[in-house]
Simulated assay, not measured.
Amino acid sequence: MSDRQYILFYKPYGVLCQFTDDSASPRSTLKEYIEIPNVYSVGRLDFDSEGLLLLTNDGQLKHHLIDPQFEHSRTYWVQVEKVPTEEALQQLREGVTIQGYRTKKAIVTRLENEPDLPARNPPIRFRANIPTAWIELTLTEGKNRQVRKMTAAVGFPTLRLVRVAIAHLRLDDLEVGKWRMLTDYELQELRAKVLPRRLR
C-alpha cells in the first residue's frame, strides 16, 4: 500500500482530465498542475466543467468507484438557464431519456442561494433578460456529459457545472488548480465505503 497515491484536485475550467493532448491545438492538461507520476483520474470531468477530481494509481479502488454497478455518488452544483420548475426537477429525480438511455434516479434540489464558488475564468455569458438558477444534483452513474444532457432534456440548459463531491470527499477549502493527498482517515473511510470487506 505504501506506493499507492490518492490525490484530490480542484480542476479548473478549460483543463483536460489527462496528462497529454495530442490535438493540433493542444489544450491545458493535468500535467500543468500535478507533478506526481503514474496517477490517473477516477472518471472524468469535461473540459468545460470544474471541480473535484480524484486521481490514483490504485486500479482496484478506481474500478469500484467508476463501475456503475457499484452506484457510488457524485454531487454537482449546476447553474442552469432560466428557473427550473418543480415538474422539471421531479423529471430529473425520476430519470430522463437521453439518446435512448434512461438515466437512473437522482437526488435533485434547487439551491435557494447562489453557492459560494470562485469566479469562473472566463465567466459564463450574461444575458440580462434570461434569469439563471442553481441546482444540486447527485448521480450514481457517469455517462458522457450526462448532467448537461439531463438538464437540457427538461428544458434548462447547463451554463456552469461544478462537481463538489465524490462519495464523502468534498471540495471544501481546496483552491482552484490546487491538489492535496487524501488523509489516512479519508482513505480508510473511502475504502470502507467502496470496497467489499475482503479487499479493504
Rank of each mutant, 00 (worst) to 15 (best):
L45H: 02
N113T: 15
T103G: 07
T97D: 14
P68V: 11
A119T: 12
A106E: 12
I66A: 04
H64Q: 11
D46V: 04
I98R: 08
R120Y: 03
T109C: 00
W77N: 01
G43Y: 00
Q69R: 15
I66M: 13
P68F: 03
P118Y: 09
R110V: 05
T56K: 08
Q99R: 07
L117N: 03
L54E: 05
I98H: 09
Q60K: 14
V96C: 04
L53S: 05
R44D: 03
P84Q: 01
K62S: 13
R74E: 15
R74G: 12
L54K: 06
T75M: 03
F47S: 06
L61I: 11
E112V: 00
E81T: 02
V108G: 05
S73W: 03
R110L: 12
E86R: 10
T56G: 06
L65Y: 08
N113R: 07
V78T: 05
L117V: 09
L52E: 03
R120T: 12
Y101S: 14
P84N: 02
D116C: 00
V42H: 06
G59V: 06
R44P: 02
K105N: 12
F47H: 11
G59C: 07
K105P: 14
D58F: 05
L45W: 01
L45Y: 01
V83M: 04
L53N: 06
I98M: 09
N113S: 14
N121V: 15
D46Q: 02
I107Q: 13
N121R: 13
F70Q: 12
L45N: 01
L55D: 09
Q69F: 01
L65K: 11
H72M: 10
E81K: 07
V83A: 02
I98N: 10
F70C: 12
F47N: 06
T103I: 08
L117H: 13
I107D: 10
V78I: 05
V78D: 02
Q91P: 01
K104P: 12
Q90R: 14
V83S: 08
T85V: 08
L55P: 01
R93F: 12
L55F: 06
S73K: 15
Q69D: 09
G51D: 01
E114V: 15
W77H: 15
H63A: 11
E50N: 02
A88Y: 00
L53E: 03
H63T: 13
N113K: 11
V78G: 01
T97W: 02
E94F: 00
V96R: 09
R93H: 11
N57S: 09
D67A: 12
L111K: 13
D48N: 13
T109Q: 09
V96K: 08
D58N: 13
T103D: 12
R102S: 11
F47R: 03
L54C: 03
G100F: 05
P118T: 12
Y76V: 07
E71P: 10
A106C: 09
T109L: 00
L92C: 06
A88C: 02
K104I: 07
E81A: 02
E50P: 01
D67N: 14
P115M: 08
T97G: 02
Y76E: 04
T97S: 14
R110E: 13
E81M: 10
P118M: 09
R110Q: 15
L54T: 07
I107F: 07
D116I: 06
I98Y: 03
A88E: 07
